[in-house]
């Protein structure tokens, strides 16, 4: 049983606000047909310093922007080669100073398909795998997109990713993913259409996946291809958002409770453009199971 848990590590930290996007819900592991992972995660993130263009700024009329979110995560193997991943966050954000209204609502539902393109097993049983993923993210509610305190940008986006995944026989892995996020135009309450910049996204993740522990550290760089700087009267969703972040994740199965585990994570912003200089902690409760009658075999495809 412990063996089984080690087969399904995953990442469960998300935060999608005006100022921050997650490092992505996709990892390099495939679940295997019929195996399903669900997670409820909670995270807290805050910043009092943000970047206007590249310039760090403190705004005493906003104070500290604090964001709490709860996220539902489901990932399951449709086949041995193809996973479906779904995320659904509820976000609440507020400013400690000034008079802007708080915001809270369900944000954007995201659905991804992630599949294996090819896999290579080298003589010592290490594996090298190339995966591709496509995803659609779309707002679930009519939340406010264009305010200093908001939970998202209302843009429906399509993203494509290529994921290279190396796993050694000793459980060490390295995952490198490169994605392009295409963001659709939105229409503001002011009744004009604006462009939400597309972005390139790169994530490098490395760690170890063992019987009773999963640990990783990651680096993420996201760069919008164009866009505006934060400024008076400039629609926020049109901002060029770039950032570099690092973080880590720990996962441990719960003792005495089969199928359950907990994870803990943190993320730190190193620098950015038109984004909050935020740090984040998160925790999650994970439940995983298989729709197959018998426990899955120790699959090579994991």
């Amino acid at each position: 049983m412990a063996q089984k848990i080690a087969l399904y590590p995953y990442i469960v930290m998300f935060l999608f606000t005006q100022f921050s996007m997650s490092q992505g819900p996709l990892d390099g592991f495939l679940k295997g047909q019929g195996n399903i992972v669900t997670a409820i995660s909670f995270s807290h993130e805050s910043f009092d310093r943000y970047y206007v263009g590249n310039q760090g700024t403190i705004n005493r009329n906003l104070g500290t922007i604090g964001t709490n979110s709860a996220n539902l995560f489901v990932a399951g193997g449709l086949t041995e080669y193809l996973d479906l991943v779904l995320t659904l966050p509820y976000i609440s954000t507020s400013a400690s100073e000034g008079f802007w209204s708080d915001q809270h609502d369900f944000q954007d539902i995201a659905v991804y398909l992630k599949g294996s393109l090819f896999k290579l097993t080298v003589p010592d049983q290490s594996q090298l795998q190339l995966l591709a993923a496509v995803g659609v993210t779309t707002p679930l509610t009519d939340y406010i997109a264009d305010a200093p305190v908001s939970i998202g940008n209302q843009s429906t986006q399509i993203e494509t990713r290529l994921i290279g995944h190396f796993k050694s026989i000793k459980g060490i892995f390295v995952t490198s993913q490169f994605g392009y996020i295409k963001r659709n135009n939105i229409t503001l309450d002011r009744e004009f259409e604006i462009s939400v910049p597309d972005a390139w996204d790169y994530v490098l993740r490395t760690g170890g996946s063992y019987k009773k522990l999963y640990v990783d550290g990651w680096f993420q760089y996201q760069n919008s291809r164009s866009g505006t700087d934060i400024g008076p009267g400039v629609p926020f969703p049109s901002n060029e958002i770039d950032y570099t972040r690092v973080g880590f994740t720990l996962y441990h199965p719960l003792p005495l409770m089969n199928h359950f585990g907990i994870s803990l994570g943190a993320a730190f912003t190193l620098n950015g453009k038109n984004i909050g200089d935020s740090n984040r902690i998160s925790g999650a409760l994970i439940y995983e199971f298989s729709t197959k009658k018998s426990a899955p075999q120790n699959k090579k495809s994991s």
Binding site: S116, L117, A132
Partner: peptide, 10 residues
């Protein structure tokens, strides 16, 4: 065939 499908979708 599945992998071909995935490649096509991508």
């Amino acid at each position: 065939l599945q992998r071909k499908k995935i490649q096509f979708i991508v």
